[in-house]
Simulated scan of single mutants.
Amino acid sequence: MRIIRFLNENLVPTLAALTDDEKVYVLPHRDFIELVQVAEEQGSTPLSLIEGIMATSNPLDGAASDLNLIVPIEAPEVWACGVTYERSRDARNYEATGGKLDQSTFYDKVYDAERPEVFFKSTAARTVGPNQNVYLRSDSTWQIPEPELGLVISKSGKIVGYTIGNDMSCRDIEGENPLYLPQAKIWRYSCSIGPAIRLAETVEDPYNFDITCRIYRDEKLVVEGSANTGQLKRKFDELITYLVRDNEVFDGTVLLTGTCIVPPNEFTLEDGDRIEIEISRIGVLNNPVKSQVGKSVGAQ
């Protein structure tokens, strides 16, 4: 069972359940977190609550693909983890050494250390949803998407859902100096989430999600890569433990768990590209790529 949000005919954000056979049932809740909280108050689960609603209602007419989907949760904060896959460590070493892969760097230490890399990524205002534009940073010449499984967590750190995230990154800025990481990761509309949230209780094995990233230029496939969350070096509980330690975390926070798919070193995103990130049992997150040139604050 997945949760989506869409704009109805009056352009009002609407929460809905999306079944595995693509039927859509409108839910009488403001957002995903309210759904989770109501289920807890009733001593139930989100899935049981939804099944009760479905038993007394009819699905929407038409296909789910015809809906005007928006970001499935307005996450108050998005955090992210780095160097959680061997491929990510190798890519970071390449950036930091100018391609001298025989040199050991601090990324090797992070990969093997007890403490994971956890960093702040985005806010609701900086985050876009499915089919919305992600933007290139104007002072970088080497930019890529980072396709990642996202954990939707409660303020206690409990995983309540799984989603898809795109952690847009500037490889040149991060490679120049690790202290530049915030600038390499955080800028206007540099994060996307969606198109749905898979209920955690419906996932038997979260370490068996297949992840595929495709990048199109002039609608021709130019980059494609695949991975599986079974390749993760660290467990989700470990990453969450460090995020919530001595930290205030809000209901609906999203934690991106790192990437194992990195485009070729000679590749950089360009204005007009299109990114597709697919994760099994969640869906496909599609985002066109735009430059910041001529863009006003708040425009989309």
Rank of each mutant, 00 (worst) to 15 (best):
R2N: 10
R2Q: 08
N10T: 01
T19D: 02
D20F: 01
D21V: 05
E22G: 01
L27I: 02
D31K: 04
F32Y: 13
L35N: 00
G43Q: 06
P46R: 11
L47P: 01
A55E: 10
G62F: 12
G62Y: 14
G62D: 06
D66K: 14
L67R: 03
I73L: 11
A75D: 00
P76V: 06
G82W: 01
T84W: 00
R89H: 02
Y94S: 01
T97H: 09
T105L: 04
T105E: 07
Y107G: 01
Y111W: 12
S122I: 08
T123V: 14
A124R: 10
T127N: 02
N133V: 05
D139S: 15
S140H: 07
S140L: 12
Q143H: 14
P145M: 15
E146P: 00
P147L: 14
G150V: 07
I153M: 10
K155M: 15
K158Q: 15
V160R: 01
Y162A: 08
I164N: 02
I164V: 14
I164M: 09
N166V: 13
N166A: 14
D167L: 04
M168S: 12
M168F: 05
S169C: 11
D172E: 13
E174T: 05
E174K: 09
G175P: 02
N177K: 08
N177D: 15
P178C: 02
Y189S: 05
S190P: 03
S192C: 06
P195M: 06
P206Q: 03
P206L: 09
P206K: 09
D210I: 09
E224H: 09
A227C: 14
G230K: 11
R234H: 13
R234G: 11
T241H: 08
L243G: 14
V249T: 15
D251E: 14
G252S: 14
V254E: 11
T257L: 14
G258N: 07
I261W: 10
I261E: 08
P263Y: 06
P264Y: 03
N265A: 11
E266I: 02
L269W: 09
D273I: 09
R274G: 02
G283E: 12
G283Y: 03
N287H: 03
P288S: 05
K290A: 10
S291L: 01
V293N: 09
V293H: 07
S296P: 00
